[in-house]
Every structure is written in structure tokens, then in C-alpha cells.
Design a protein around this nucleic acid. Structure first.
Length: 696
DNA sequence: GTTCTAGAAC
DNA sequence: GTTCTAGAAC
């Protein structure tokens, strides 16, 4: 028995305040450190029960632990149960130690797996003899079975620690817990899981594990894309939702439901605010007449293109006027919608993809002021101002200017907006320039002109992209062959206008068609991106392209657009993503954005040369999370020079150098060195169980 | 991207 | 003589 309590002399009186703290966490999560720290500074007598040492310094049984714990409690001591306790069955027997005089607490050290693994791998002299390469396997196996404790199991207090600072705080709490003190009951520190960590990939690997769900209070995993109903309700108010779905031909049809969001992703969509009715104080009824009149005029001209009138406020009068009028005019409700929301967050906030956004601009085309103009310039970042100034220095009332949004703009990356159209409407506000002094004859004329200019600008974008929109794409994004993957990201930022267009289109398309390559033969799987090489595409009408896609580069695209025709390759279709088995170990430079999921065995007869190896085992290969973070932060990801593909061949585990591929392969077949820390960081490796039931 | 193959490396 | 690489061809 492992009795290192500080003192037991004054035991008897403390009986009623004894506490049992079950530490829940994987090896390497810091359970023993936690106990040691608290016991070193606490004034309360503690006993640490450790199954790894309870049998005369060697591993013992759970029964021994229970007996020792009961004895310690009887002796008036508080108890730490330091075994992994990761699943519910494991907690259950210990929870029974609790009684009216003894509080049951759990401290959950729910630290990132990679941290536990790297600590376990590094440590020496671990009591459970768990160290070195074997540790990673054990940690992963345990984490897969992890069930977080709940108050309903009999705990009076549960503290969740998901970072080292959480752990420190919990240690401080218990360290300060004097012999007579008690801690408040309840569950503390439970946070929503950070979904950015390769959740998509985890889903493919069927490895979204219990912590994600168990932790949630039911809404934490809400998709960023809201559901149809949510879109509807945000437009018309919650109580009307049901009615609308049932109404056929009623006045609300003008903005009826946005059925499956994904099916609209291909539809060119213009989101526009009501022009001149806010700060420019234009009469709402006159404005709504003009909006409906102009939409009606253009909606038929523009094929399947869609118009969305957006207003921030759900009680907006202009929206209800327009809705009513559009209903009377029987405008196709699929082509003209009203939408309540932030025009700069239509996709991320409302699940509505709008590739073109209109801005109610000022005549100087400058950021500032308030309302939509300020919001759009702010959301788009400084690149919108630069791009705008390249097109026009100012704008007259009734005019519009189309500005392609640089791919570096957050509005582009996050919302999928490719163009902003600045429009200047008539001004009825005496405090603003070009005041029309109640001249509504002129005012209506200018407003009509403004909407015509706006919709014509939109039409020109639709036309230039017609070939693209009419492609018979499936609703689904992409596909995968076998192995590693790459993101196609423009190599440089300085390109000609023509070039820029090509690249922008490339990125737009990439966004819609995320590809994911999957390799089986699971040992550890790593997700990441290798650099794309090609950055032009086969735009027949664009003579400026620098490089065409070879026929071989199209296969992923074909599968992505018609997954049903490639059932043998497609593993899974999920949302707008298609998962495929990769045919070859190395498939960079395939058309469209795709993500590779690779295993760490690298045991493929197709892996034949230095370029193959270094594509996945050098800085050329980038982790998807890192790339996403970089894009979030800087609007783009940088690429390594391709020179690194001809670097020397080094084992990815032990880093030893090898003269040629056959020798390298024979080495990696035998190398059992632990994975280097760089691979264990940031969740780069996901651990899978193989057929033998072992983890790697 | 892979395959093919000449010639370099061993 | 055989193994392996790297560039051309596809």
C-alpha cells in the first residue's frame, strides 16, 4: 500500500470531511503528478492509491485498491485513486466508496492525446512500466474507450481539465482544501470540444470519440451550416416556420425554404441590401416597388441565378414589403429570397452561399460610415479597398462597380464570396452628399438605375462563369484516391490580372470540391497537405493559363462530380465531401482541392522514388490543421520549394539516412523507433487499431 | 500522376 | 552483371 499521506495523527475528527478523488485520464495525462503536488502542499491527510504499485511495489488488483481505499477512509484520510479509470465500469466500484460522510469527486485530465502520448513516450522509470514506443499504442487504445464520468454515476463533484492551466487550477483547488473544508458540488470546467481538430477526418475514420459527444450539452456540435428550418425561421420568425412549409402559393413563397443548402451551392447567388433605404432615407414603399420590379426583370434573364435581399433586422419593414409584393407578382420563390442576417456572414452564419455580395457604397468607395458599407469593408479586409481602387476611384449615384474579391480576403475564404459589387443609390438625407431634396421622380429613376447596374454587374459575373455553373456536377464535393493529399493554393501572390482570375476561379472551385484521399492499411494515419504544383486549369476561353491539367489529373475531379459512377472507388460520401481510396501512393497535383489521409507504414509497391517519399516525409507535406490555421490567419498558405523533394532519404521514425529507395524501404519495414515529437504534435497522427487489435 | 528505359552506380 | 535513378514520354 502506498501511504504517503502527510500525517494521520489527527484522523478521527476529519472523517466526515473525507473525500475520494478519482483521477480520470490516460497515461501521461499527469495523474500522479497531480497527486504528488497536492499531497506535498495540502494540510489535509491524503492517501494515494495506485494500482501500479499497490502489490508491494508492483502492480496489484482493483480489489486491493478498493480495500486500501476503504481502510484509508476509515482512518479519516482522503484518497486519490490513481489508475486510469477511463471507462465507466472502471469508475463504478470506486464510486461505491462514497457515502454521506465521504464525497466522491472526479478530476478528469482530459488533455490532448498527443500530449499524453509524448509524455508517456518520453518518461523513464514509470511505475506501470509504460514508456517508450509502446506507450502511444496503449494511450490510444485507452482513449478510444474513454467514457467521461457523470454526476449521475454518483460523483458529487467533477472537474474537467482540458488544458494544463485547467490542471493547475484544479491542483490549486485541492491543495488549498483544508481538513475541514469542502468543495462545492457540481460539474466544472466542461468545455465544448474544439471541433476544428480534424473532426472531418475523424468522422471518416469513424473515430469521433465519446468525449466529443459526452461533453456536449446537446448543442455543442451544431453544424456551422444551419438547417433549412433555421434559415426559414430567421427569415420569418420562429412561430411561423411550420406554416410556411405548408403554404403553397401563399405570399410567403417569395422567400420560401432554402431546401438542401448544398444543392444550392452551385447556384450563382447575389446577396444585396436594400439600397438607399437606410442612411439615405429613401421611402420604403417606393423602394420595395423598385426592388421587385427590377428583380422580376432580371430573374428571368439570368437562368438559375438567385437573388437574396438581406437585412440585419428580423422586423425589417422593407423585407416584409418586398415579400408581400414578390408574392403578388408570383416571383419564383427559389430565385428570389429574403434573408435576415449579417450580409458578411451569410455562409458561416446562415448556411447560405452567396458568391456575389452587393455593397451599399458611398461615393468615394471608401470604408467607413456605418451600416452595410462599413460591415463589408471591415469583413473583407484591406484587400477589398485596394481591389476597389484598382477599378474605380469614385461612384456616381445610380452606378455600380464590380470588384473581384482577392482570394486573400476573409470574405472570400470564409464566406465564398468571389465578387463585391459596390452600388450607390439616390440620397434623400440632407446630411449626405448628392441630396435630392424630396425629388422622388429623380430619386426613383436613380434607384432603378442603381438596381439595373447592380443586376447587370451580377449578370456579367454569371455569364463569365456560365460554363462553370452549368457543369453537371453532382451535389457532392470530392473524392479520393489512395494516400497523401494536397491543397491547391496559388504559389505566389503577385500575378497579372488575367492570372489572378484563373487562380481565383481555381480556388473557388476548390472550395466547392474538397477532396480527400484515403489510404488504408492502417497504422497511424496522418492527415495533411502537400503542395499543389499546378495552379492553372483548363479554362478553354482563357488564353492566359500557364499550364493545362493533364488527363491523369482529372480522375479525382471525375469521381468528385459523379461519385455514383465510381462506386468501387468511393468509400464514403458525407455532406459535400467524397472519400475515396487512392489508387497510387502519390497523387499530388490532381485537379481540385483534396486532402490526403496517409498511413505511416509506407508499405506500398507504388512508392518508388525519392519524390514519392519526400512528398510525405518532408516539410513539403503539411498538416491540414496547420494549413487551415494559416489560411485563417493570413488568407493563404505558403508552399515549400519543390527542391526539398530531392533531398536525401531519411526514415520518418528514427531519421536515419538511406542511399536509395529499396534500402530505405527495407529499413522502415523494421524500424520501431517511436514517432518523432513533430509528428505527435497537433493531432497530426490519429491512431487506428489494426486487424491484430494492436494500436500503432 | 505513372511507365519506360538509358546509363550511372555499384 | 545487376540494381537503381532520373528524365522523357505518356
Amino acid at each position: 500500500m502506498d501511504v504517503d499521506g502527510k500525517s494521520s495523527s489527527k484522523g478521527e475528527e476529519e472523517k466526515k470531511n473525507a473525500v475520494v478523488v478519482i483521477l480520470v485520464g490516460a497515461p501521461g495525462s499527469g495523474k500522479s503528478t497531480f497527486c504528488d503536488h497536492v499531497m506535498r502542499v495540502s494540510t489535509r491527510p491524503w492517501v494515494r492509491i495506485c494500482q501500479d504499485t499497490i502489490g508491494n511495489g508492483k502492480a496489484g488488483t482493483k480489489t486491493q485498491c478498493l480495500t486500501s481505499a476503504a481502510a484509508a477512509l476509515k482512518d479519516g484520510k482522503s484518497v486519490f485513486i490513481d489508475r486510469c479509470n477511463l471507462d465507466r465500469e472502471q469508475h463504478a466500484d470506486f464510486v461505491k466508496l462514497g457515502n454521506p460522510q465521504v464525497d466522491m469527486h472526479a478530476v478528469v485530465l482530459d488533455l490532448p492525446a498527443k500530449l499524453c502520448i509524448s509524455r508517456s513516450v518520453k518518461r523513464e522509470g514509470h511505475e506501470g512500466n509504460l514508456q517508450g514506443g509502446r506507450a502511444a499504442a496503449v494511450v490510444n487504445r485507452m482513449l478510444q474507450k474513454k467514457e467521461l464520468p457523470k454526476l449521475s454515476e454518483g460523483f458529487s463533484r467533477i472537474a474537467f481539465c482540458q488544458s494544463e492551466s485547467d490542471v493547475q487550477a484544479a491542483m490549486d483547488t485541492y491543495s488549498a482544501l483544508g481538513p475541514q473544508n469542502t468543495l462545492p458540488s457540481g460539474s466544472f470546467g466542461q468545455k465544448n470540444p474544439d471541433a476544428k481538430v480534424q473532426l472531418g477526418v475523424m468522422k471518416f475514420l469513424k473515430k469521433v470519440d465519446s468525449p466529443v459527444n459526452a461533453v456536449s450539452k446537446g448543442d455543442s456540435l451544431k453544424d456551422s451550416v444551419t438547417t433549412d428550418k433555421e434559415n426559414d425561421s430567421s427569415s420569418i420568425g420562429r412561430e411561423e416556420v411550420k406554416g410556411v412549409e405548408e403554404v403553397k402559393g401563399g405570399e410567403d413563397l417569395a422567400f420560401s425554404s432554402l431546401k438542401s443548402t448544398s444543392s444550392f451551392d452551385n447556384v450563382p447567388t447575389l446577396a444585396f441590401p436594400s439600397i438607399s433605404t437606410a442612411d439615405f432615407q429613401f421611402d420604403l414603399e417606393k423602394a420595395s416597388d423598385i426592388i421587385v420590379e427590377k428583380v422580376l426583370e432580371f430573374v428571368t434573364k439570368l437562368g438559375n441565378a438567385r437573388f437574396v435581399l438581406v437585412d440585419l433586422s428580423s422586423g425589417s419593414k422593407i423585407l416584409s414589403l418586398v415579400r408581400a409584393e414578390a408574392g403578388e407578382k408570383n416571383i419564383d420563390s427559389g430565385k428570389f429570397l429574403t434573408f435576415v442576417g449579417d450580409i458578411t456572414r451569410l455562409y458561416s452564419g446562415g448556411g447560405l452561399r452567396c458568391n456575389v455580395v452587393a455593397n451599399a457604397a458611398n461615393w468615394r468607395l471608401k470604408p467607413g460610415g456605418g451600416g452595410v458599407n462599413a460591415a463589408i469593408f471591415s469583413a473583407a479586409g484591406p484587400s477589398l479597398e485596394t481591389a476597389t481602387m484598382e477599378r474605380a476611384g469614385s461612384l456616381a449615384p445610380g452606378k455600380a462597380v464590380v470588384v473581384p474579391l482577392p482570394s486573400t480576403s476573409p470574405l472570400f475564404c470564409r464566406e465564398g464570396v468571389t465578387h463585391v459589387i459596390h452600388v450607390l443609390g439616390p440620397n434623400m438625407n440632407p446630411k449626405r452628399p448628392n441630396f435630392l431634396n424630396k425629388d422622388y421622380k429623380k430619386g426613383c429613376e436613380v434607384l432603378r438605375e442603381a438596381y439595373s447596374a447592380l443586376f447587370e454587374g451580377f449578370a456579367s459575373i454569371v455569364k463569365s462563369r456560365k460554363a462553370f455553373y452549368e457543369e453537371p456536377t453532382g451535389k457532392l464535393g470530392s473524392v479520393q484516391l489512395v494516400s497523401p493529399v494536397d491543397f491547391k493554393i496559388p504559389r505566389k501572390n503577385q500575378f497579372s490580372n488575367a492570372d489572378q482570375k484563373v487562380k481565383r476561379e481555381d480556388v473557388y472551385e476548390s472550395d466547392r470540391n474538397k477532396k480527400c484521399k484515403v489510404l488504408h492499411g492502417e497504422h497511424g494515419s496522418q492527415t495533411g497537405a502537400t503542395n499543389g504544383i499546378d495552379n492553372a486549369q483548363n479554362e478553354k476561353n482563357n488564353g492566359s493559363m500557364s499550364k493545362a491539367w493533364g488527363a491523369w489529373a482529372q480522375s479525382l475531379y471525375h469521381i468528385a462530380t459523379n461519385p455514383e459512377k465510381h462506386k468501387n472507388d468511393v468509400m464514403e460520401i458525407s455532406g459535400d465531401i467524397v472519400v475515396v481510396n487512392d489508387l497510387y501512393p502519390k497523387a499530388p497535383s490532381m485537379r481540385q482541392l483534396h486532402l490526403h489521409v496517409i498511413s505511416q507504414d509506407f508499405n506500398s509497391k507504388h512508392l518508388k522514388n525519392k519524390k514519392h517519399w519526400n512528398s510525405f516525409n518532408s516539410a513539403f507535406f503539411r498538416d491540414s490543421v496547420d494549413v487551415m490555421e494559416e489560411i485563417d490567419k493570413f488568407g493563404r498558405a505558403t508552399l515549400k520549394d519543390e527542391d526539398i523533394l530531392s533531398m536525401e532519404l531519411r526514415c520518418h521514425r528514427c531519421r536515419s539516412a538511406h542511399p536509395n529507395i529499396p534500402r530505405l524501404k527495407s529499413h522502415i519495414g523494421n524500424c520501431r523507433a517511436p514517432f518523432p515529437a513533430s509528428l505527435l504534435q497537433n493531432g497530426r497522427l490519429l491512431f487506428a487499431t489494426d486487424k491484430d487489435g494492436t494500436n500503432q
